[in-house]
């Protein structure tokens, strides 16, 4: 996992403290019961804290798995 992935995994550990480390890369709204709409918003804020960037609430619905968020962040950080 690259540095972005490792930092994102840290965000997941903050938002979902009961999620095991090995489960994080495959985590999604379908596999994590605690990942509801509130958790999704909190996740965006935690990512903002970690990566010092602004997330767009319009992207909320699409960012429903670790893999998608990871890809989204890689693109954002490349542009930056």
């Amino acid at each position: 996992m690259d540095d972005t992935g490792r930092r994102l995994a840290g965000c997941f550990q903050v938002v979902f403290p009961n999620l095991r480390e090995a489960e994080i890369p495959s985590a999604s709204q379908q596999t994590v019961a605690a990942w509801d709409s509130v958790a999704a918003i909190i996740m965006m804020n935690v990512i903002e804290d970690e990566f010092a960037l602004q997330m767009d609430l319009d992207d909320l619905a699409d960012l429903d798995s670790f893999a998608k968020i990871h890809t989204h962040l890689q693109k954002r950080l490349q542009v930056a």
């Binding site: 965000c11 903050v14 403290p17 804020n45 935690v46 903002e48 804290d49």
Partner: peptide, 11 residues
């Protein structure tokens, strides 16, 4: 506080 710090405190 930032939200990440707040979550860690509550946990």
């Amino acid at each position: 506080l930032k939200i990440t710090e707040a979550l860690k405190i509550t946990q």
